[in-house]
Amino acid sequence: MAISVPSIAEPPDLLVVDDIEVVYDGAILAVSGISLKVADGAIVALLGANGAGKSTTLKAVSGIVQADRARISRGCIHFDGRDVTGLAPNLLAHQGVVHVLEGRHVFPQLSVEDNLRSGGFLRKLGRREMNAALERIYAWLPRLKVKRQTAAGLTSGGEQQMLALGRALMTGPRLVLLDEPSMGLAPILVEEIFGIISHLNASENIGFVVAEQNVNVALRHAHYGYVIENGRVVDEGPAQRLAEQENIHHYYLGGTVA
């Protein structure tokens, strides 16, 4: 692979995705030439219509693409200065990147608390540290504490989204990849979840890459945004500038830019 290593020398960039191409089943091209950067402690929004390639980009970063019978056929991904292209997702989680999958993939048969605990396993926490970590999560996401003994599959959509986020936070991440957190949730819950993201970002310096179709909310909380269309980045810029842009909603609706 003859790839030109980009400016990874710049220390503030926690994640650098350089010109990646992702192929499903050896034939279907899902992402062709996406590049993006996430500064340490930033919230970055990936915007675009359904099927634009947002999810695939996140899966390429986290390594989950491999479980989908897809692979990165070109380009490279650096996290914290290290090449993590094609690294298995569980190994990447140990390095501090955790992926919250689209559609709230909680473990339905496990209790809410066991879901959270499972996120803490990779840090090999002792019993007391584990309880302290759980209490921190409950402080951030108090709705979960009420439901701690309930089977996760029986909680509401909003609670499952918070649980998936809380479980990811239990891994002690530096960067959280969040796929469509607003999907199927009432507007008030979407606000609540993005509020928590902003709070965690400010107080814990956790970076977020959020793929969203809900452009308004995403840009209100993000620092920077990328607009993805047909597997390519078609626009990027500071969130505020993107939000003021007239045509931004065309992407959201899947229309083309005039």
Binding site: S62, I64, A93
Partner: peptide, 16 residues
């Protein structure tokens, strides 16, 4: 049990 419930989610939180 986590792996049995959702393999991908288990992978994403670092379960080997």
């Amino acid at each position: 049990r986590a792996v049995a419930d959702d393999t991908r989610a288990a992978l994403s939180i670092g379960i080997n």
